[in-house]
Design a protein around this nucleic acid. Structure first.
Lengths: 346, 346
DNA sequence: GTGAAAGCGCTAACAT
DNA sequence: ATGTTAGCGCTTTCAC
C-alpha cells in the first residue's frame, strides 16, 4: 500500500496541471484541453482555467508532453565551427525560422570533438528530438550507418555541399558555379595569372570551389599551372601564411581567388604588410560575404550566400519531413556575386 | 480491461528499454542499472545487456528520463545578438564547458523578438530545463517578477555588466576599469583630444565604458568636452556614420576610443575613405578583441575579454547552483589590454 | 461539456 | 543480484 500524500503541500513545488485543475475546480483533462485551445470548452470555463494557471504560476512541462506526444518540437543543429562567422550568421536565420514554426533548437558544436556528434544522433534515434539540421559536410558515422540501413530519418543538410550521399535532403547553392563566377569576373577584368588559395584539400566545399576556378580558367583559355594553386585553409592565419609562400614565387599572380573570406582577410593583411597594394598590385576575391568584407580596406569582392533562404528552406523541409514525411528532394538556391574594390582594375 | 498487445511487433518502432530487457532476458530495472553503470551488476550481465542494447539500436529517451529525474541536463543560453561575433565566440566556450559537465544547451536568440525570452523563462519555471545563462544585460520581465517574488532559480549572467539586480549571480569583467585602461593608454601615448564613440545610450555596457573614458580623462587632466563625445552604436554602420559627424566638427580629435570593435571597424573604414591615416592622423581603439581586429589595417588596439574563463566559470557556477544550490556570489575576471598599431604614436 | 483512467519510457524504492 | 512496482506530468481515448 503506497502511502499517498493527501494534499501535496510542499512550498516550493513546481506547479502541475493538477494544481491548476484543483484551483479551477475541474479535471486535468479539461485543463489540458482548455490550454491547448481545443473545441468543446465553453469560453467561461476557459477563462477560469487560464486565470487558475496564471495564479498557480503554471507552465507546461516539456518532457511530460514530449513523452506523451512522442514529439518534442526540438531540432538539433550540428555546427562544425562557430568561430567561422558563416555559421552564426546562418544560425540567426535558422533560429528564427524554427521559432516561427514552433520548434526550439539545440546546438551541437563539433569543432573540438567530432565524435561528439554521434551522441546526438542517438537523440534522434531515441526519439528525443524531432530532426537534425546539418550545416557541415561532415556527417556523423552513426547517421551514415542508419541511412545505409535504409532507415528514414528527418535530416536536412545545408550550407556545405553534399558529397554523393543519398538519403539526406540538401538545401544549398551551386558551389562550383559560384566559384566559376568569381574567377570569370576576374578574367573579364583582364587578369591573366589568376591564382587560387585552396581550402582544406579533403573538404568537399574546398574541392568544389577549386573546380570552379579551374573551369573558369579553362573557359578563358588561361593557365591553371601548378604554381597558381596555393594550398591553404579556411582561416585568417592560413591566409597570412599563404602570402609568404606567394611572395617566394618567382612570378607573382595578378589576382587571387581565395576559397573563403576569412583566408582572404589574412592574405590581404599579409600582402599589405609586404608593401603590395590591393588591387593595383594583386587583386583579391573571397567567398562567403561575411559582414566585415564590406568595410575592410579595400572592400572585398566575394560571393554572397543566400543564408536566409537557406535557413528558411531547410527548416521548412525539415518540418515537412517530420510532420508529413514529404518534401525530400534537393534544392539549389541562387547565389550572388558581390563586386567590390578589391578586384577592380583602376 | 485494457487489451494488451502481447508482443509489440511494429517494424519501425523506436526501441525502448523493454526491448533491450527482453533480448537480454532481464528486467528493465537491471537494464537501467547496467546502462547507468550502477554497482551491483556483475560484469557478465553488463556485457550481455550492452550487447543487447547495441543489437536493438537502443538509445535512452531524454524526455522519459528527464520526467522521471526531474532534471533535464539542459541549460538555456539567452543570446541577444548572434551577429555580434562576441556572442558566438563566447558560445563556443559555453558549449564546450557545458558539454564537459554533461549538459546540453538550447539557445534562445532574442535579437528580433525580445518578448520571446519570456517563453523560455516558463521552461525554467516548469522544470523543463535546469538553468539559464544570460549573456545580455537584458533580463526577461517574467524572470524579474520571479526573482522579486523571492524565488530562487539557477541563473547566471555573464558578458554584459549587471545592472543593480540582486538575485542573479554574475561572472564578468570590470567594464569601467577596462575602458579606463584603454583611455589611459591613449593618454600616455600623448594624445590630448581623446574622443569617445558611445554605444546605445541606455545600454549598461555602453554606460560603463563611457564612465571609464570620463574617469581616465579626468585623471590625466584632459577635457571631456561635449564635442568629444559622439553618440553612436555597437555596429559597423553606426561607426561609419559617426565618422561623417566627426569630420564635420571644427576641430578633429587626435584619438578615438570606440565602445566596441565593430563600431571601430566602421569608423576606421570611413575615416580612411576620407583620406585620414590611422594612427598618424587619428588613433583608434576598440573594445572586445574580435578575431578580425588582429589582421585589420591597422591592427586594432582593444580590450580582450576573457571569454573562455567567463564561459567556464559561468557554467561551473550554474552547475553548482543547479546541483548544490551554492556558489552564488559574483565573480570579476581579469581583462587584458591589447595594444596594436592603431593607437601607437609613430 | 467534462471526468476517469491508461500509458508514453524511464528510474528507484522496495522486495526477494 | 535481480525483479516488481509505482509514478514523474502530460494527452487522449472512452464513457457519461
Amino acid at each position: 500500500m503506497a502511502k499517498r500524500k493527501p494534499i501535496p503541500t510542499n512550498e516550493s513545488r513546481i506547479p502541475t496541471m493538477a494544481d491548476v485543475a484543483r484551483i479551477a475546480g475541474v479535471s486535468t483533462s479539461t485543463v489540458s484541453r482548455a490550454l491547448a485551445g481545443l473545441p468543446p470548452i465553453p469560453e467561461e470555463t476557459r477563462q477560469r482555467i487560464a486565470q487558475a494557471a496564471k495564479e498557480a504560476g503554471y507552465a507546461v512541462n516539456r518532457h511530460a508532453r514530449s513523452l506523451r506526444l512522442k514529439r518534442s518540437k526540438v531540432i538539433l543543429v550540428l555546427i562544425p565551427n562557430l568561430a567561422n562567422p558563416n555559421f552564426p550568421d546562418l544560425l540567426i536565420h535558422i533560429d528564427r525560422a524554427a521559432y516561427d514554426c514552433g520548434y526550439d533548437i539545440m546546438i551541437a558544436h563539433t569543432a573540438i570533438d567530432p565524435g561528439r556528434s554521434d551522441r546526438y544522433v542517438d537523440e534522434l534515434l531515441a526519439g528525443s528530438i524531432d530532426g537534425v539540421l546539418l550545416t557541415a559536410s561532415y556527417c556523423p558515422p552513426r547517421l551514415l550507418e542508419c541511412i545505409a540501413a535504409g532507415r528514414h530519418l528527418p535530416i536536412v543538410r545545408t550550407l556545405s555541399p553534399t558529397p554523393d550521399l543519398t538519403g539526406i535532403t540538401a538545401v544549398q547553392i551551386d558551389e562550383v558555379k559560384a566559384a566559376y563566377d568569381v574567377v570569370d569576373h576576374l578574367a573579364k577584368q583582364g587578369y591573366k595569372r589568376i591564382a587560387h588559395l585552396g581550402g582544406p584539400p579533403k573538404e568537399i566545399m574546398a574541392i568544389a570551389r577549386r573546380k570552379g576556378w579551374e573551369k573558369a580558367l579553362a573557359d578563358h583559355g588561361l593557365s591553371a599551372s601548378p604554381d597558381l594553386y596555393i594550398q591553404s585553409g579556411f582561416t585568417m592565419i592560413e591566409g597570412q601564411r599563404a602570402a609568404d609562400e606567394i611572395r617566394s614565387r618567382s612570378e607573382l599572380p595578378d589576382a587571387i581567388f581565395c576559397s573563403n573570406d576569412e583566408s582572404a582577410y589574412g592574405l590581404i593583411a599579409a600582402l599589405k604588410g609586404h608593401g603590395l597594394r590591393i588591387p593595383q598590385d594583386i587583386a583579391v576575391a573571397g567567398f562567403d560575404d561575411l559582414s566585415f568584407s564590406a568595410v575592410m580596406d579595400p572592400p572585398l569582392t566575394t560571393v554572397r550566400l543566400p543564408r536566409r533562404d537557406m535557413a528558411e528552406r531547410s527548416i521548412q523541409k525539415l518540418k515537412a519531413l517530420i510532420e508529413d514525411d514529404a518534401d525530400n528532394d534537393n534544392t539549389i538556391l541562387a547565389h550572388e556575386l558581390i563586386i567590390r574594390a578589391s578586384s577592380l582594375r583602376s
